[in-house]
Amino acid sequence: MGLLDLLRKLKSDQNKELRILLLGLDNAGKTTILKSLASEEVTNITPTQGFNVKSVNSSGFKLNVWDIGGQRRIRPYWRNYFENSDVLIYVIDSTDRKRMEETGLELEELLADEKLSGVPLLVFANKQDLLQAAPASEIAEGLNLQTLRGRTWQIQACSALKGEGVQDGLEWVMKTVASKSKSKKKK
């Protein structure tokens, strides 16, 4: 490898951009997680119509996070944002037991989509600050995450409102992406 190649490689590593998709039912806390990632005020959120997108810098990576509204009426548009996604983050309101099945079905449909095949999945079990929140392990079981094949996944308990657990989830994302790009290079 020549010096020029080395420099070029260093440069391309530095400017690496990641496309992260943030999905989940309405009122799961996607926008709050987005704002929490960008270290912004989380107390004046409104329901998302359409989408929000923010760029966050994390350990040399530029993360472009797409937060798409979760209202039933908007869900058919989710597919338009799948292309070239590096990581899928799926947010669940751990207190919303009535809609656990609905959110499971939506996730199942996402994972079956060809455009998202092999994309690492991070599930945020959000709103853990509330008493009635189901523990992450229970949610993982409900979603049958253990049976997933051909995909790295992780479930992370968090409270976006309190800012707890969100960074841990992000760290997992960075680690996963780094090891994935390494294994690609080996091939």
Binding site: D26, N27, T43, I45, T46, P47, R72
Partner: peptide, 17 residues
């Protein structure tokens, strides 16, 4: 409203919304 119960739609705007 988004779903069958508006109570979760006011979010950070509360009663002002």
């Amino acid at each position: 409203f988004q779903g069958v119960d508006p109570k979760t739609d006011f979010r950070g705007m509360g009663m002002l919304g």
